[in-house]
Write a protein that binds this DNA or RNA. Sequence first.
DNA 1: TACAAATTTGTAATCATTACAATTTTGATT
DNA 2: AATCAAAATTGTAATGATTACAAATTTGTA
Lengths: 146, 146
Amino acid sequence: MKNQHEVIAKLEQFGVKPSLQRIAIMDYLMNNLVHPTVDTVFSSLSASIPTLSKTTVYSTLKLLAQQGAVLELNIDDKNVRYDANISRHAHFRCKFCGSVHDLPLASLDAVAVETAGKFVITESQLYCKGYCDSCKDKAESVARSA
Amino acid sequence: MKNQHEVIAKLEQFGVKPSLQRIAIMDYLMNNLVHPTVDTVFSSLSASIPTLSKTTVYSTLKLLAQQGAVLELNIDDKNVRYDANISRHAHFRCKFCGSVHDLPLASLDAVAVETAGKFVITESQLYCKGYCDSCKDKAESVARSA
DNA sequence: TACAAATTTGTAATCATTACAATTTTGATT
DNA sequence: AATCAAAATTGTAATGATTACAAATTTGTA
């Protein structure tokens, strides 16, 4: 569990006024770096905040992403996922179990150079898909029996 | 307009049995490399194929992507987009007008090396977002007046 | 305390995508 | 050419994530 002050400082750093709900959501993201969906965040917090509305989770996560406090991942074509790790890294999604993992990323400068002047790039994300270690065997046997 | 034989050859190369609809859809993608959505493909073809069903467009595009004949882009959080250019390249989406453009891409090998053994990566896409040349001024003035 | 602004809530749309059953087409066989 | 099964297509009805919006609540301040 992150220190409340740390969470509040993070919110303020990105120009987000802290509220009970916003603190809880940001805190959850900072302590659960597994790229949760809106639904996961909502379900996880509604026990401790029974009055929490899913709309609030949606709007808060959108606000946090707009302010740059978290990343909004579109790697999953079903649900948007959120990530409090805003340092440069790539994402990997297992096509079998759907889990999303972090990947270290050396550099994307090659892209920036080649497009200098044509586009103003404000954000970039590298999405990789395939099979994670614990799924690659299962995925193979499903393919065989298909 | 691409040669019919070229389109059919492409389909067969990827194990997709050619049909009137499949040929038309693949042909459209090969001649419209602007990353169209399902809806755009459907609207564009329904004039020449009045009986075309949107379900067919959905299932055909999914099939083409599964077989590797086209790329399925999730860069747009509203609609899936499709791309007949399957060579290695990145994508740029303008956050103002929504247009999606190609970006040349030198290498993503750095990622592959760092994850060797941990994951089986079967596909990777680099998504960049920002403002395209014709929107960056408009986006700025909107931001000012907000 | 009072009041305006900001935030949260709950419900009702929206809309892309999928499920599925019925229809049509295709291709092989006679 | 007729038959028939498999494959493909179609149309309609769900599904389900996300958003719109108005009402209710909370917050900060005079």
